[in-house]
Design a protein around this nucleic acid. Structure first.
Lengths: 236, 236
DNA sequence: GAGGCACAATGATGAGGATCAAGTTAAAAT
DNA sequence: ATTTTAACTTGATCCTCATCATTGTGCCTC
């Protein structure tokens, strides 16, 4: 499956990535550090599965994770992209319900697991941590609401452009300054945009024809961010 | 504009509606009570406006509030319906940004205002309150993600049925057990579903023809909840 | 009661985008 | 290297749904 081990460098890890856990009081962070278990997931492996009950939360150490929500007809909708420092699986834990999304590694990734009881108890006594958690979730919620509006009001073309910018914002670009620093399948891009795979493909080649992007297998280079932004037609 | 006054019955109000604020430690709740200002808004009046900076949060005392997000083309998307006991305007406050949605009274409503500084300072020291806040926001986020999935995968017909059930869940029904306990314009229903007004109207009359609902002006009676649920095609 | 106004309803039309089908490339497995 | 499989691409078709246009209905004002 995946190798599990204790990662002694938790403090370093948090500091490096500015993770939320770093906001916890020191003694609590140390407690987390002692209890956590770090696991390595290969690309495509499932960190947790929609419908399962949560036993704790996860903090992404390295790699990239997609959180996707399976629709009734079986098609997936990617609701979030997580990067190192991000925590995932907190919504189900907080609302004490089953996962509404699956977490799947986009890369080889290492993810720390923090047991439910520990995390919850710390959360209840550590106002600083829960305050920070709240801010993060609130910001996620804002993003989700904007996405809802755009889904119901914007055409696929604009949403695709927006998604490309979002990917860049989330995972950044490679050293050349153009290539998106993640390999997503066309289907995954479509599931992020909320459209059919064929539509995503078609529009990507249009963007390419128009000189906005360059395609090379799964590599996507954003050549003209200006124009992509204009295509996304963002007001706010 | 709207009458503002101190409402001595805050403790009662919270208790009655099981508001989140009731989770605050007692001394903090008293502090909130002392500082809050209650205002009355007439139907259609704006509690806060998208784009403005937040000065505090609001707790709905009586009445119904819609939170709507204005799309780039000016069409509104209703992202939430608030009822007595709910707090609104917290996302902008927590993320220290401008409102991304406007709050507008659907009814004559009375809403309590709690100043920013007070609320934030309490939140940072009151782990119990911020924990509860977190749970609420997390649950909102879950709902939002489901909505995103449905928006991108389900046809309007199913989404309308789902919306009717959602309205029932949120505001309940009148004493007859059928009539939705809120008056929304067709446009508002459409903006809740995420579709054109005409489409909402057309489908509503289809539902009526099929005996699922009864229409009488703005009154909507859910005659056959069973069948509406089936039409909504909910799996999860 | 006549006029005006907002909202509701219905019809006609067209475009955007999903779906189906077929062919192509790329990657993985043997 | 060859087969197998999966992912990508492109074309053709169909259908949902948005848009435009028109008429109908209730409601308030004068």
């Amino acid at each position: 499956m995946c190798t599990a081990f204790h990662n002694a460098s938790c403090l370093n890890c948090q500091a490096r990535f500015g993770s939320i856990l770093f906001k916890a009081e020191k003694c609590n962070l140390e407690e987390i550090e002692a209890a956590k278990v770090c696991s390595v997931y290969k690309k495509g492996q499932v960190v947790f599965q929609e419908g399962a009950y949560p036993f704790g939360i996860y903090c992404v150490n390295t790699g990239k994770i997609k959180l996707s929500h399976c629709g009734d007809d079986g098609r997936e909708q990617i609701v979030r992209l997580a990067k190192p420092g991000d925590i995932i699986g907190y919504k189900a834990l907080l609302s004490a319900e089953r996962y509404t999304a699956s977490a799947i590694a986009l890369d080889d990734a290492s993810v720390c697991f923090i047991p439910k009881d520990l995390f919850m108890s710390i959360l209840q006594k550590d106002a600083s941590l829960s305050f920070e958690m709240m801010r993060i979730i609130a910001s996620e919620l804002r993003k989700a609401e904007v996405k809802i509006t755009h889904l119901s009001q914007k055409p696929v073309r604009e949403r695709l452009a927006e998604t490309l910018l979002f990917i860049k914002e989330t995972y950044g670009v490679e050293t050349d300054g153009f290539t998106l620093n993640v390999r997503l399948s066309r289907e995954e891009i479509a599931n992020l945009v909320g459209t059919a795979t064929e539509s995503a493909i078609r529009l990507l080649s249009e963007f390419k024809k128009d000189g906005l992007i360059e395609l090379q297998g799964k590599k996507i280079r954003l050549l003209n961010t200006e124009e992509i932004t204009r295509t996304a037609n963002l007001q706010d």
